[in-house]
Design a protein around this nucleic acid. Structure first.
Lengths: 207, 207
DNA sequence: GACACGACTGTTCATTTGCCTAGTCTAGTC
DNA sequence: GACTAGACTAGGCAAATGAACAGTCGTGTC
């Protein structure tokens, strides 16, 4: 990749910092102000040079569109993502994402075989209703919201305004939720079954 | 943090995805187009709601400025370490570290409550000898070599030149290994008991 | 000296874009 | 029924913004 002049490097650094720290890319005027240019054209020239040299992608005429090309961004080893960890998920979560997620869990998408665009959250398991599937109280279930649940999947479902894990089963084409513990009853939903995601992995801390 | 409606969640997801994947935040019109709104006001309403509920930061009148607040973004990894994942551990492993570990697993030391100087490796569980402790065939056990095993700990021990998981127990002051499955026998070692580490966590892939 | 190029000033212009007003429809709640 | 809130349509305005044009100045280089 073609080398940059020192000034171009400064401009690139500024754009990149702004992008990662504030979430938005600066405008030509903001770049000009940052470096004390009296004219935006100076900033535009630098941006044009960075484009030409392949450091920025750009959508013509779109505001704030000089984003640093993804491959150049601070790369993360493997595909590690911190996902929110919920204790109990209040009613309607999958839609809500109430931010009571104080904690997060690092999930390695790659080693779990997840697609990069999967929507993942983590749920702390309460109770032993899934004990016969070897899912214990205190386990952390990694849930994929973007996966369509199939028969036999362990799913996070909304029951009594709380999210719990159950196995998804079908009977005469109608879905119901099976607890993997004979002391618990299966749930045949009267109306709509609210499934928030499919469990794709499990993490257990062993003190 | 206040809860979101399903539509608001969708909009937030779209903004966040766009921000991380393309580097730029979508405009009101792009949001409207994405969701098929005929009017931008619909998009603006959602963005306003997200702002009010604290999910987006925003600079008035600035283009593409609805960035997802930094704290909510996928955060940089913490103390992440790739540890070797062994299938079966050959005899004398702990000293050798034969690099036949084709695979590695990313482990977040912090969220697992591990000390930074812990010596960690991963072991794929074979068989169901620990099934009553809800450790299944195919699970990945995270083992700490630097921890001193206590009674009741699940340990990786060297038996018949292979490493397997058992529960450490004591009888008259003498240690022995208990299988958590009545079909398996407990092991009372005749000579020395070779314990390679204590299981500190478990990861299970659910297809 | 002629030429190229990077860095910059000053100004203008067409679009892009956020945001406002005004209103409809639906669902839920007291 | 009255009331509230969310979700949406329709149209329009003013600010924000990228980009173009026309130059200047300095530093190399052939």
């Amino acid at each position: 990749m073609e080398a940059l002049t020192s000034r171009q490097q400064q401009v690139l650094d500024y754009i990149q910092t702004s992008q990662t720290q504030h979430g938005v890319v600066p405008t030509m005027r903001e770049i000009a102000r940052q470096f004390g240019f009296r004219s935006m054209t100076a900033a535009a020239d630098h941006v044009r040079a960075l484009r030409r040299k392949g450091y920025l992608v750009h959508h013509p005429r779109a505001a704030r569109s000089h984003s640093v090309i993804p491959a150049m961004q601070t790369m993360v080893p493997r595909s590690l993502v911190n996902v929110p960890l919920y204790g109990t998920i209040p009613a309607g979560f999958a839609d809500e994402r109430t931010q009571e997620a104080e904690r997060t869990v690092a999930v390695d998408f790659e080693s779990l075989g997840l697609r990069p665009d999967s929507k993942i959250f983590a749920l702390e398991v309460r109770g032993d209703s899934m004990i016969n599937r070897h899912i214990c109280d205190g386990d952390i279930a990694i849930i994929d919201r973007s996966r369509t649940p199939k028969q036999g999947d362990v799913v996070a479902a909304l029951i009594d305004r709380e999210s719990t894990l159950k196995t998804l089963e079908f009977e005469n084409g109608r879905p119901y939720l099976r607890a993997e513990n004979p002391h618990y009853l299966n749930l045949h939903p009267s109306h709509e079954l609210l499934i928030q995601g499919v469990m794709v992995a499990l993490v257990r801390r062993h003190v």
